[in-house]
Amino acid sequence: MAKIQGKTKPSTAIPNASMSDIAFLLLIFFMVSTVFVKERGLKVILPQGKSIEKIPRKTATTIYVDRSGVISIDDFMVEIPMVRDIMIRKLYDDFNTIASFRSDRDTDYGTMSDILNQLREANALRVSFEAKMKR
């Protein structure tokens, strides 16, 4: 009588030899594709606050003001009367622009007030004063 051979079960193992390749590929992909915002700005020490909220980075135009009153927007040193025209242009590009002040805590308020008046004239009414969370 002929011997009936039992069916051989197919192996169900998932090949995991290339797992490391996939992981390294992901790692390299994210390392290469990540782009960081490169704005040099000015060296400032921010004031501190408790009731601070997040500012959407995409719509924010950062205005740097250092302790000696130097103003920088988009890495260009500007004078106070130029702020109005710059902000009008920014608003034309994006209606939701928020002027975000990144000012040194020891800046004279007079300088800040003059810039705020320029913003009002440009109709850039949404402003934000950047601060660090008080611990």
């Binding site: 915002v37 606050g49 601070i52 500012i55 959407p56 924010a60 975000s100 009002r120 109709n123 934000s128």
Partner: peptide, 24 residues
Amino acid sequence: LLVFFLTTTKFDVKQGLGLVLPPP
């Protein structure tokens, strides 16, 4: 390595006090 960098990477989040100025 992937998990280490995912957990330790800190993005610079903008935080501040918002205000709406009066019109000119």
